[in-house]
Design a protein around this nucleic acid. Structure first.
Length: 821
RNA sequence: GCCGGAGUGGUGGAAUGGUAUACACGCACGACUCAAAAUCGUGUCUCGCAAGGGAUGAGGGUUCGAGUCCCUCCUCCGGCACCA
């Protein structure tokens, strides 16, 4: 009589039903509290959906469905990060327009996503490559430009000779960690000087660091963001040049070591070198050094393990403002021109880099800090009793000490703690406190075709002008030569040039670079709140209603930059009054990478890629969803195991079969009921914390206990189905309908549990002797310590082990009783 | 080197300081079957016939009691790394 579980029929039927009924279209009129549950939108690659997508999307789908059942109005959208290099490279190879391949890939992705039964509101779908979207990407460019947050300037840029484009610093590291290569093609990058557009993200450096304290993100991601920004607090100190009015300003985080600064080092780019080269006595040596190093890229200069090189500016000296002693000035490529002031005070006794340099060139060292806590008597003795030579000898032996401690050889600061005098010293010696950052401005120009055109035109003098907003979207031309020839493909479009001249006049030229695709993805979560708005990127009311995002899910691999840029855009909008908050993503979680069965990364070249479609076809979407959630902790990296999927399928088949035990009259056994109550409680808590693997296992435990029963009351089965519904939406909908319900199970409320039934009447507790388990006794749930002791004494085996008069008895209700002899 | 995170059966993995190995896969045996598959049942960390021991990367510590907390060390993963 009972139907068999035909996942193909069931899943197809309900997906059609949900789609036709608009089951997951967000209800804008609802007054329920909102919940914005967002996945990082994918790049629609031709390879299709991979197992990692399925994992993240299933987790947020379960969360979104759970929140709906809990009575929230949920916004759960999906879209496409559609501009980017693969489609363009494919176009170069095959002459197929990128729009064509991209749209095809999107259709494929959408089909795959829909086959998983994910409850997205497809009426809000966006694609960054569509003019009605990139119109607003261009609007953001103009918004930043008008407010002084976008500017064109010359910049040394990383240039990929193969892809013929500029790359951001962060795109010059290959996936295997190799530096100085194009992230896409692995070609060694070269450095070029070009006029480029920058977004001034550094204006927000402080807020980008500080506001991390207020968001619920994985700690490691916060650390990555902080590292990237690289905020460091220190001081700028002026060193005057002897017999000259020039001065050299250095940045240091350790002003407390200034008495140990025995020489200065300038970056090769430092302007003082050319200004004072005439007063040096080794001019040709210096020039030869600069010439030899001028083509070195920063990445090469900072390569791991590279031997430090440098040359002294002989004939000129600097004066240490603390000791008033003359110290040599060197040029060395280990000092970076683009960071701090491009000059440092070298303290070889207390900095390992300066130490290595001083050793190589036999420069003086002076120790001025000794570790606190009298750890090193030899050093202490030397500092107070020894000669400068003996101290130097000691340092050479032990290496630089970079920690904090007690000052010595520092005149009036002697015997004070290094931390407490830091600020005092920097002010007393012609300096001021200063904060610097590693973060650089965001270079957004790309010499590529498949991106949003930068909405700028140049007058006949070459001066840039913003394109007035009424001309947006500034369309991406189609009559282009894809194959780049060192200039941007847009430069080959006749239509674009004619369009520009027609609107702005003869001699005007369009900007031919496009925007970094990270610009497109830095604001899409705003658009989802109001995706069809023709007047604004999103209305203030819509953003007020839906944002910030309550839960944001995506892989950890490539998100440092995306998150940074999205936060930057949000802070810019906040500054100019568009939004009231400064952080776009309240809570962030990362799904872990799913590895191939052999425990290595899936890759096309290794041929070990798992295609989720295959398993959706074979076992059904519900099974794949359950399996991927059951594999292990969401955020953990875990290997795929095809053999294990069958367990998830069997679970659903048992859910299906147990309907045969249903009975309207039956009462649930108290113990089975208690398992059900625990399951309602635990699964709810687990979904909230996204511990979905243990949620699935709890449902399995619950089903196991039902299977021991003769009959299952209908209401019990209904509760169970409602708990399972977010995980396996199709099978539960079918079974729900079979129970005679006309409405969808997914509009039901989340079941409540009865706390009074959570506990079983009889429980097993462990009996310990001095902390070692010796056996168990079955006791009534509410049994007192005395009653438990009685039971233990009555037990034939335990009574022999437990001492007559224990010195102590520890009773933890419901857990253990421990007798200490 | 620095900063995160992790190390538990044959495998994926559970465990508010309270019976380590839940749940699942696999495997073995049994039932059903002419047979097989499917399904169901039993067993499955380790030494031991048993009674009992031992085991959560290694070693210490705190505690009545430690996978969990503290210290030292080892290994693996992720990130940063000449940023003064």
């Amino acid at each position: 009589m009972a139907k068999t579980y035909d996942h193909k029929k069931i899943e197809k039927k309900w997906r059609k039903h949900w789609e036709e009924g608009g089951a997951y279209v967000t209800d804008e009129s609802s007054s329920k509290p909102k919940q914005y549950v967002l996945d990082m939108f994918p790049y629609p690659s031709g390879l299709g959906l991979h197992t990692g997508h399925v994992e993240g999307y299933t987790a947020t789908d379960i969360y979104a469905r759970f929140k709906r059942m809990q009575g929230f109005n949920v916004l759960h959208p999906m879209g496409w990060d559609a501009f980017g290099l693969p489609a363009e490279n494919y176009a170069i190879k095959t002459k197929t327009p990128p729009r064509e391949t991209t749209n095809k890939a999107i259709d494929n992705f959408r089909n795959q996503i829909q086959s998983l039964g994910l409850s997205y509101d497809w009426s809000r779908e966006v694609g960054t490559h569509n003019p009605d979207y990139y119109k607003w990407t261009q609007w953001f460019f103009l918004f930043l430009f008008e407010n002084g947050l976008a500017e064109k300037r010359m910049g040394k840029v990383n240039w990929c000779p193969t892809d013929q484009t500029v790359l951001a610093n962060e795109q010059t590291v290959s996936e295997s960690g190799e530096k100085g290569v194009c992230v896409r093609c692995g070609t060694k990058i070269i450095q070029r000087e070009l006029a480029q557009w920058f977004f001034k993200i550094t204006d927000f450096a402080d807020a980008l660091v500080n506001d991390l304290d207020g968001v619920d993100w994985p700690e490691s991601t916060k650390v990555n963001q902080r590292n990237w920004i690289g905020r460091s607090e220190g001081a700028e100190i002026d060193f005057s040049v002897a017999e000259s009015r020039q001065k050299i300003t250095v940045f240091t985080t350790r002003p407390d070591t200034i008495f140990g600064a025995t020489y200065l080092v300038l970056a090769p780019e430092h302007p003082l070198i050319s200004e004072s080269i005439n007063t040096t006595i080794n001019r040709s040596e210096i020039e030869a050094y600069l010439e030899k190093n001028k083509d070195l890229k920063e990445i090469e200069r900072t390569a791991e393990g590279r031997e430090k090189t440098g040359v002294e500016l002989k004939g000129i000296k600097a004066i240490n403002p603390a000791t008033k002693e003359e110290i040599p000035i060197w040029v060395a490529d280990y000092v970076l021109g683009g960071y701090g002031t491009g000059a440092i005070m070298a303290v070889p006794a207390h900095d390992s880099r300066d130490f290595a340099f001083a050793r190589k060139f036999d420069l003086p060292m002076k120790a001025v800090i000794i570790p606190e806590g009298n750890v090193d008597f030899e050093l202490q003795h030397l500092l107070f009793e020894g000669t400068q030579e003996s101290v130097t000898e000691y340092i050479i032996k032990t290496g630089a000490y970079g920690g904090t401690g007690i000052l010595v050889g520092s005149k009036q600061f002697n015997a004070q703690k290094s931390e407490t005098v830091k600020e005092k010293i920097s002010i007393l010696v012609a300096g001021r406190t200063k904060v610097t950052y590693r973060l650089r401005d965001w270079l957004i120009s790309r010499q590529r075709y498949w991106g949003a055109p930068i909405p700028v035109v140049y007058d006949p003098e070459g001066k840039p002008h913003a394109i007035p907003k009424e001309h947006l979207p500034w369309l991406l031309p189609e009559d282009v030569e894809y194959l780049p020839k060192g200039t941007s493909p847009l430069g080959t479009s006749k239509e674009l040039l004619e369009r520009t001249e027609k609107i702005f006049g003869k001699g005007w030229k369009p900007e031919i670079d496009t925007m970094d695709t990270f610009v497109c993805s830095s604001w899409y979560f705003f658009r989802f709140s109001d995706p069809h708005n023709l007047e604004e990127f999103a209305s203030k009311e819509a953003m007020q209603k839906w944002l910030p995002v309550d839960l944001y899910m995506g892989g950890a691999e490539h998100t440092v930059l995306h998150l940074m840029y999205a936060r930057f855009i949000t802070k810019a909008l906040q500054k100019f009054g568009y939004v009231s908050f400064g952080e776009p993503f309240k809570a962030l979680r990362h799904q872990g990478m799913i590895l191939a069965e052999d425990g290595t990364k899936m890759s096309k070249s290794k041929g070990n890629v798992i295609n989720p479609d295959e398993f959706v076809e074979l076992y059904g979407a519900d099974t794949v969803r359950i399996y991927e959630m059951f594999m292990g902790p969401l955020e953990a990296m875990k290997p795929w195991n095809t053999q294990n999927i069958i367990g998830s399928r069997r679970f659903l088949e048992r859910v299906w079969r147990i309907q045969e035990k249903m009975s309207k009259e039956a009462l649930l056994d108290a113990n089975a009921d208690s398992v059900l109550q625990q399951t309602i409680k635990k699964v709810g808590e687990d979904i909230q914390t996204l511990s979905l693997n243990t949620a699935v296992s709890q449902m399995m435990i619950c089903l196991n206990s039902f299977e021991k029963e003769e009959h299952i009351p209908v209401s019990t089965y209904e509760s169970f189905l409602r708990i399972l519904a977010p995980f396996a939406p199709h099978i539960t909908e079918e079974l729900w309908q079979d129970l005679g319900h006309t409405g969808s199970i997914h509009t039901e409320g989340w079941p409540t549990f009865d706390p009074s039934k959570l506990e079983k009447n009889e429980i097993v507790i462990a009996v310990q002797l001095a902390g070692k388990v010796k056996g168990t006794v079955v006791i009534a749930n509410k049994a007192t310590e005395d009653e438990v002791v009685q039971l233990v004494r009555a037990d034939a085996k335990l009574s022999l082990i437990v001492p007559e008069k224990p010195s102590r008895t520890i009773f933890v209700p419901g857990r253990i009783i421990n007798f200490i002899p």
